[in-house]
């Protein structure tokens, strides 16, 4: 009867047109039994926050290759907080310099996955968080 599914929004903010990484993550999460809402390219922070709200997701994954993460991610997080979604896990994938990673983690991003990260670790982290609200391993 009551079936609890983990729902994850996988999205690509910013203007770069590469969604391969996002699609790989979306498929990995699906293969792990999660329901992934995929929005496609060129999402504004407003679009992302609205989708996260309407879909009542447990986690939001932002794939950013454009280098605009310092502008985009804080806006997404602020909008989600304003909507009352401060408990939703936010993770970021992309090539992000170390100082920026630290900053993103400080403002509430749960994890940043660089190019070498395995999708299995993303799956694992989301599961842990959703099932137990444990802080997840950060890299």
């Amino acid at each position: 009867m009551a079936e609890r599914k983990i729902r994850v929004l996988v999205t690509k903010p910013g203007l770069d047109g590469h969604d391969r990484g996002a699609k790989v993550v979306a498929r990995a999460l699906r293969d792990a039994g999660m329901e992934v809402i995929y929005t496609g390219l060129r999402q504004t922070p407003e679009m992302i926050a609205e989708a996260a709200l309407q879909e009542d997701v447990d986690a939001v994954g932002l794939s950013i290759l454009s280098g605009a993460h310092m502008a985009l991610v804080p806006r997404v997080i602020n909008l989600m907080r304003a909507n009352g979604q401060e408990n939703v896990l936010v993770f970021v994938g992309g090539i992000i310099p170390e100082p920026d990673v630290r900053h993103l983690l400080e403002i509430g991003v749960a994890a940043v996955y660089g190019p070498g990260s395995s999708t299995a670790s993303i799956v694992e982290d989301i599961r842990k968080y959703v099932l137990g609200e444990k802080p997840i391993a950060q890299n």
């Binding site: 979306a26 498929r27 999460l29 699906r30 293969d31 792990a32 039994g33 999660m34 329901e35 992934v36 809402i37 995929y38 929005t39 496609g40 989708a51």
Partner: peptide, 8 residues
């Protein structure tokens, strides 16, 4: 699992 893509 599922990938829900209608929002695109």
């Amino acid at each position: 699992g599922a990938v829900l893509g209608d929002r695109v």
